[in-house]
Write a protein that binds this DNA or RNA. Structure first.
Lengths: 226, 226
DNA sequence: CGGTTTCGTCACGCAACCGTCACATGCCCG
DNA sequence: CGGGCATGTGACGGTTGCGTGACGAAACCG
């Protein structure tokens, strides 16, 4: 599965294209402006970018140039304008391909595959597994936790606790189990777990009062909701 | 200067396109059949191939597949047929791009440049792997490190440390793992790693206080961020 | 042989983290 | 409705982890 970022201001086209891409098996993020697209790509890089040229605010050409300053991601221009001048300008700005709307999604998918084949191998891409719980991402090998794509600072015990829960999604783990697996205490104060769960919640929950991920099951323990 | 092979059966198009490409600065070989094209590419490989789909004898699809068996050269289909089915089939056969006739030579040239930018395929360039982490480049074989394109003087242990981290981008490596892989100490003072990391940081980070690449993950170890 | 670079060790100090406790809050059930 | 128990939370030392500067030994190089 690969992720695609779609930057297109026309609501109808954006939504329908996004849905069509999802159907083709692409995880799609769609935004209406170049600014949002750049922000998105910075926070959560996609594997390919589709960009319209005529956008409110920053236009597509400038968007491509900005992207190219830091990113080697495949870029396809998807524009209604079909004159040679625009095509050349788009490609010269740094795009890899240029298609004219309306375009069949099958064709887009084929062009994405062609680009991926060709794709640069040199740039370093982390090969880390990601455990996803809604807007919460956990990368065990990277020692990293992200909420809404933003890295969250988590301490070592909190991280181990979170990983332990994440390895058993939706399953309740008792305080005793957690003590034993995270702390390697066979006996100890179970309240210790509460404290760390509490601290963790403030970091990975939008509202610590009403946790959506790290839920307590009264009398039994805690679990991490998918 | 780069050489282009044009495979197109229509005499008028072939000749006019070849001339136009010459004007754009491409050294062009134009042939009317797939068989001749393959022979040509075998004897005198061009840097890019333009191929029509409807050809007498072997058709364009088969021609592309044959080419791809031995050659990683950029291929652009130049066809009169503009339906999705053909486009997808052409790209799936191994082409990198597909344009519909009539096409402006300026556009063709821009697409060739875009492909060349992306190019760098295994067979085209000698494999000097370069690991890129934003503005940081590491060439293991060359024993070279560059920051913002500027070479940075790094000692031998620092270099090996850096390579070890770079080979696992985004992954946390513990001090113990680093000691064992870089120093081949199975036991030893883990603080040794800290010291070298610290020294390395002063060289490859713009601000050693707030490292952007060589990040420490408290309680776990270090990692190199893409 | 003298100077320079690199390496490993050590000690110090700051900052972050951890575990404990005490208290507040909320939930269950009679 | 109210007691009792389970859980949340805030504060507070003690501890640990990490960055850093200094130093001597070893290696390297002219």
């Amino acid at each position: 599965m690969s992720a695609v970022l779609l930057i297109e201001d026309d609501d109808r086209i954006r939504l329908s294209l996004a849905m069509a891409l999802e159907d083709e098996g692409y995880q799609t993020h769609a935004v209406p402006t170049a600014e949002e697209g750049l922000e998105m790509q910075r926070r959560q890089p996609a594997d390919a970018v589709l960009v319209d040229l005529m956008l409110p605010g920053m236009d597509g050409f400038e968007c491509i140039r900005q992207l190219r300053r830091t990113d080697d991601v495949p870029i396809i221009v998807v524009s209604a304008r079909d004159d040679t001048h625009d095509i050349v300008a788009g490609l010269e700005a740094g795009a890899d391909d240029y298609v004219v709307k309306p375009v069949a999604v099958k064709e887009l998918a084929a062009r994405l595959r062609a680009l991926r084949r060709r794709g640069r191998s040199a740039s370093a891409t982390p090969a880390v597994t990601v455990l996803t719980f809604g807007d919460l991402e956990i990368r065990p090998e990277a020692g990293e936790v992200r909420l809404h794509g933003e890295p969250v600072a988590v301490t070592r015990t909190e991280f181990r606790l979170l990983c332990e829960l994440a390895e058993h999604p939706g399953q309740v783990l008792s305080r005793q189990q957690l003590l034993s697996r995270v702390w390697e205490y066979e006996i100890g104060d179970e309240r210790l777990v509460d404290v760390h769960v509490g601290r963790l919640r403030h970091k990975i929950e939008d509202s610590a009062g009403k946790p959506r991920h790290l839920v307590t099951v009264r009398g039994l323990g805690y679990k991490l909701q998918p």
